Amino acid sequence: MSSDSDVEAVLDLVAKRIDVLRLLDGERVRKRTIAEELDYSRSTVNRTITALTDAGLVDDAPDGCQATVVGSLLAEQYDTYVRGVADILTHRQLLASFPLDAEFSPKVLADAEVSVPRGSSPYEPYHAIEALLERASGQVRVYVPTFTNPRGIELATRLSAEFDVEIIFDRELVRELRSDVPDEVETLSQLEKFTGYETTDGPDYSLVVVDTESGAEGAVIVHSTERELLGCIVTGDPDATRWLEQRYSDIRAESERLDTLP
């Protein structure tokens, strides 16, 4: 078993020489070509290949050098890590609005469309969510602690007339809906394809999972405690949507079925 110091040494080597591992991933490359491609001196290449070979990351043979399975896997994981860090840093202003203990996966940011209100486009996040819902071709699942969109009930009613729609409401939101818009929610609750739930233990962000013709897509909607829409993250990435589906399933498992909203 590798010691902690051995692991740290290999991680440091991968970070420093990831460019070499990428070049050697999948085919043999002669040292002269490595030097030319990466603009390294021959001595630097020799030292690098020796270090990577000693660590078991590269196979050095007379006909060239090639990453081993271990080297290839480490290069892939390193690149995945770098992309994930870049996604987080790119959207850190939006993510900073989450509570300190928010359960959120960076997978949701992978290849995502992130929309925030801008001076010239203050409703861009609303349009992104509505576009996602318009792509629905099957079940729609929503967890919503608060409505920042005044058209929320209208959208839910329109979707429930055609597709199976599940909505988990925060319990306080249910009370507000019963008081503020009883007629609209009565219409929604009477639709055969609509199923409502309520919970007191959901996250502060909204969550949407939609079955589309191309597969599942999902979104996280971020809002402030004052119900100001701060942005949304829309994704069709398979790993991201699997996390969103599981997160929704976990919330529903702790929710109670609503027979009627009003």
Rank of each mutant, 00 (worst) to 15 (best):
M1D: 13
S2Y: 07
S2H: 12
S2I: 10
S3D: 08
S3C: 00
S5A: 15
A9R: 15
L11G: 12
D12F: 05
D12E: 15
D12H: 13
L13Y: 07
R17Q: 15
V20C: 02
L21G: 07
L21C: 07
L23F: 08
D25T: 14
G26W: 13
R28P: 02
R28M: 10
I34S: 06
E36M: 01
Y40K: 15
S43K: 03
T44W: 03
N46T: 12
R47G: 04
L52N: 04
L52Q: 06
D60K: 10
Q66Y: 05
Y78E: 03
Y78K: 06
D79C: 06
D79V: 05
Y81H: 14
V82E: 15
V82P: 06
R83D: 15
G84P: 03
T90M: 12
R92F: 09
Q93K: 15
L94Y: 12
A96I: 00
A96V: 02
S97M: 08
F98C: 12
F98I: 06
P99S: 11
L100A: 14
L100I: 11
D101W: 01
S105R: 13
P106R: 02
K107F: 07
V108S: 10
V108P: 06
V108H: 06
L109N: 01
D111E: 15
E113D: 15
E113A: 14
V114Y: 09
S120M: 13
S121L: 14
Y126T: 10
H127R: 13
A128H: 07
A128S: 15
E130L: 06
L132W: 10
A136S: 13
S137D: 05
G138L: 08
G138W: 06
R141G: 00
V142I: 12
N149L: 11
R151P: 03
R151F: 09
E154W: 04
A156C: 02
A156Q: 12
A156F: 04
L159Q: 11
S160I: 07
S160R: 04
D164W: 01
E166H: 13
I168G: 04
I168N: 11
D170F: 01
R171Q: 05
R171N: 07
R171F: 08
E172K: 15
P182S: 03
V185K: 04
V185Q: 08
E186A: 14
Q190W: 07
E192N: 11
K193G: 06
K193M: 14
K193V: 06
T200P: 10
G202V: 01
S206H: 00
L207K: 02
L207D: 09
V208L: 12
S214Y: 04
G215H: 06
E217F: 04
G218Y: 01
A219G: 02
V220L: 06
V222H: 12
V222P: 00
H223T: 11
T225N: 09
E226S: 14
R227H: 09
R227F: 00
E228M: 11
L229H: 10
T235P: 05
G236L: 02
D237G: 01
A240S: 08
A240L: 01
T241Q: 03
T241I: 05
L244E: 03
L244G: 01
E245T: 14
Q246H: 15
Q246F: 12
R247G: 00
S249N: 08
D250R: 05
E254L: 00
E256D: 15
R257W: 01
L258H: 06
L258G: 12
D259S: 15
L261K: 03
P262N: 07
